[in-house]
């Protein structure tokens, strides 16, 4: 079975299904119309080419594209923040050739995806059930977050104050400052020692 085509087919279906759920995506696709973006992932033996029209076609071909990006999957996650592009290029985590505007427009297309999941669910369940489900899910999320936060605080108190297994952040900071001071003193002492060692040699030379 052609594995690259299975992968590109899956990616293509996922992207286009997601885009179809956002009513603003056709507008955001317009600047990309007719462009091609090629992504070469270190982890994949073949490139992924995104061809843009009124939808996105994903190909596994080697042809030249308007913009080519070479990166790893780990870097892909960092690219969500477009302001990090220059930094990633400087760090050689990312190589970008061609029209940078194409890459930026694609990043914006994905980043600005705004899907009303409640609205999507209501198509199948009706408004009331969808609203209640999302309200319950949100409340559950808030409660879980609060509980996790509280649990973290309790564990912190036990580890630092009661059992004294970990140091308090202020104590760590104070210790770090003391280490820095000691390092500076040693460096000064080393320099002074070197100076004193060189003085007899200079006298002998005279």
């Amino acid at each position: 079975m052609p594995a690259p085509q299975l992968l590109t087919g899956g990616i293509e279906m996922a992207i286009n299904n997601l885009l179809s759920l956002d009513p603003d995506s056709p507008q955001r696709l317009l600047p990309l119309n007719g462009k091609r973006l090629q992504v070469k992932l270190h982890e994949l033996p073949w490139p992924l080419t995104f061809a843009f029209s009124q939808r996105v076609d994903v190909l596994a071909d080697e042809q030249q594209a308007d913009c080519t990006i070479v990166l790893s999957i780990a870097t892909l996650k960092k690219m969500q923040d477009i302001s990090q592009l220059s930094y990633l290029i400087q760090q050689q985590e990312l190589s970008l050739n061609g029209d940078m505007h194409t890459a930026q427009s694609f990043s914006n297309l994905v980043k600005d995806l705004n899907i009303d999941w409640e609205e999507q669910l209501s198509r199948y369940t009706g408004d009331v059930i969808a609203h209640q489900s999302f309200r319950t899910a949100r409340q559950l999320h808030h409660r879980l977050t609060a509980k996790l936060q509280r649990l973290g605080d309790i564990l912190k108190d036990v580890a630092m104050d009661e059992k004294q297994l970990a140091a308090h952040p202020l104590a760590v900071e104070d210790f770090s400052e003391q280490v820095n001071d000691l390092r500076s003193d040693v460096a000064r002492f080393e320099a002074r020692l070197l100076q004193l060692e060189q003085r007899p040699k200079q006298r002998k030379g005279k």
């Binding site: 079975m1 052609p2 085509q5 590109t8 596994a60 071909d61």
Partner: peptide, 9 residues
């Protein structure tokens, strides 16, 4: 569908 995708690639 995969055979046809390969053809397009």
């Amino acid at each position: 569908r995969l055979w046809k995708r390969f053809t397009i690639d």
